[in-house]
Every structure is written in C-alpha cells, then in structure tokens.
Simulated scan of single mutants.
Amino acid sequence: MELSMEKPVMIALDFKNQGELKHFLDQFPAHVKLTLKIGMELFYGLGPDIVRDIHEKGHDIFLDLKLNDIPNTVEKAMVQLGRMGVQYTTIHALGGSEMIRAAKRGLTAGAKEAGYQTPKLLAVTELTSISETQLHEEQNVGLSMSEQVLKLAELTSQFGGDGVICSPNEVEYLKAKLPEDFLFVTPGIRPAGAEKGDQKRTMTPAEAAVAGSSAIVVGRPITLAEDPVVAYQTILSDFLSK
C-alpha cells in the first residue's frame, strides 16, 4: 500500500482524545506513510505534542487551524507552526492580502529556524458547508460561489499562498485561471453511496481526480469505517485511478 506523495489522500483525524487516535493509527502497517490532518478538536485537546508525536512516526501532517487575525498576530503564530515540521497549514483567505503575506513570512522564518522545509500555505476560500444561498443572504456577497472562490484563490496566489482549500466542484474552473503549480486541496469527498453528512458540495474520489484536485481530505468515511485500512486503500485507489 503505497501513497502517492504528489496526490495525497489526507485523513482527517476527527478524534477527541489520544486513545481514539492511537487505536485508529495502530490499525495501519508501521511502514505506511500517511498524510494526516490535525484539526481544531484534536489540536486544542492535546496541544502541540500530538503534532510532534505524529511527526516522529514519519507521517506527513496537515495542520488545519485556519488562522484569521490581524497580520502581526498571524505572522507570530505561523513562526510557531513552521517550527513543528508540518507539511501543510491553513489560513482564511478572507483575512486579506497583508495577512496572507504575513502568514507566509512567519511560516518561512519558523521552518528555516528549525531546519525544515517551508510548509505549504493553504487558504480556505468558502467552507464546503456554505451554500450559494448562505453566501448571498448571510455573507452579503453579490458574486456567485465560483466567482467568490476565484477571487479569493487569486488573492492567495498573488500574496504568497501555495494553494487553496476549496470544494471539488470549483477545481476545474479554478485550475484554468491560476498558476500550474497552485494546489487545490478538496474536502467534501464521499465514496459513491456514502452519506454526505454536513457537506453540501461533494464529489467521489474519482470525480475529484478528474476535476483536477491536487489532494483530497477524507474523514469519517475512513475513520468510522468498519475496516479503516480497507476504506483508505479503496479511496486512495479511486483517487489515483484517474
């Protein structure tokens, strides 16, 4: 079971404690290198030590904290994240150009200080739980969802970001308008026949591959599966088959 590092399946570790996490990871063969997404629940519950523990096991880490604050605060926070040896981390593109630039500056400085490569800086555009109606009626945005996401992706690229977190439904539209090496990391992935849960804009792994996703994020279809290893292998195979 080999993982393509160029097109990773990022497993969202939506666990509330270290025991659940250990039980999940122990089911995978020791030689398998995974890409694991640590989100707010796990990070706020267990702190930076969980990042270091997973890093020491040889897995790649997507630290998804979605920073969104004034540029100086975000820059200082990113220095700390850059020191951890993660491969990917996130901000909100809605934080604006100066915040994006400051985030990349802090991330680069922290990684250099610790002797790591600079993590990929990914920006959240619009959450996959946001519908077109909510975009207009709750966020008061006059653009269509595709236009809004494109504007935020272009802003990210212009000011130092490496890619965006976006719905798989927007990838094909975005790829034609952004640099070739720009990354499109897509949550909202569900195997054929699976429940959508709270995700409103979804695709299967194979559909996301055809659309041009650089990486996909999958949580519950793997972590809650009867056999997580088989579920992961199936999703990985589907994503890499296109």
Rank of each mutant, 00 (worst) to 15 (best):
D69H: 08
L21Y: 14
L67F: 15
P48C: 14
Q80G: 07
V79D: 09
Y88L: 10
I54R: 00
D64Q: 11
E20N: 14
K57I: 05
L63S: 03
V86H: 01
K57E: 09
D69N: 12
Q80F: 15
L94N: 11
M84S: 09
L46C: 13
G95Q: 00
G82D: 09
M78G: 06
I50A: 02
D53F: 02
G19K: 14
G82H: 08
H23C: 14
V86Y: 01
F62K: 08
E20C: 13
A30S: 11
V79A: 06
G58Y: 03
T35R: 06
E75H: 13
H31M: 05
K22Q: 15
V32K: 13
V74Y: 00
G39M: 08
A77P: 04
D60F: 07
H31N: 12
K33E: 08
N72S: 09
L65A: 08
I50H: 05
L65E: 01
D53R: 14
L81K: 00
N72I: 05
H55E: 11
G82V: 11
Q18L: 06
L67E: 09
A93N: 05
M84W: 07
V74H: 05
N72L: 09
L42E: 02
P48S: 14
F43D: 03
F28C: 00
L46I: 12
G45C: 12
I91Q: 02
H31W: 09
Y88S: 07
H31T: 07
M84H: 07
N68S: 11
I38V: 10
N68T: 05
L46M: 15
I54V: 13
D49R: 12
M78R: 04
D64P: 08
L21G: 06
A93Q: 03
E41L: 12
Q80A: 11
H59N: 03
T73R: 04
V74D: 04
V79E: 13
I54F: 00
K33H: 12
K22V: 15
P71L: 06
H59Q: 03
H31L: 01
P29A: 03
K33R: 15
E41M: 12
K76R: 11
P71T: 07
K66M: 14
I50M: 08
V79W: 04
I91N: 03
L94I: 11
L63G: 01
K76V: 05
N68C: 12
Q80D: 09
T35W: 02
V32M: 09
V51G: 05
G82I: 10
E56F: 06
H59L: 00
T89V: 15
K33F: 04
E41R: 10
I61Q: 02
L63N: 00
E41K: 08
H55R: 15
L63A: 02
G95N: 03
T73H: 05
L67M: 12
A30D: 13
D64H: 06
N72G: 07
G96S: 08
F28K: 00
T73D: 05
D69Q: 09
Q27R: 15
D49G: 07
K66S: 10
R83A: 13
M78F: 13
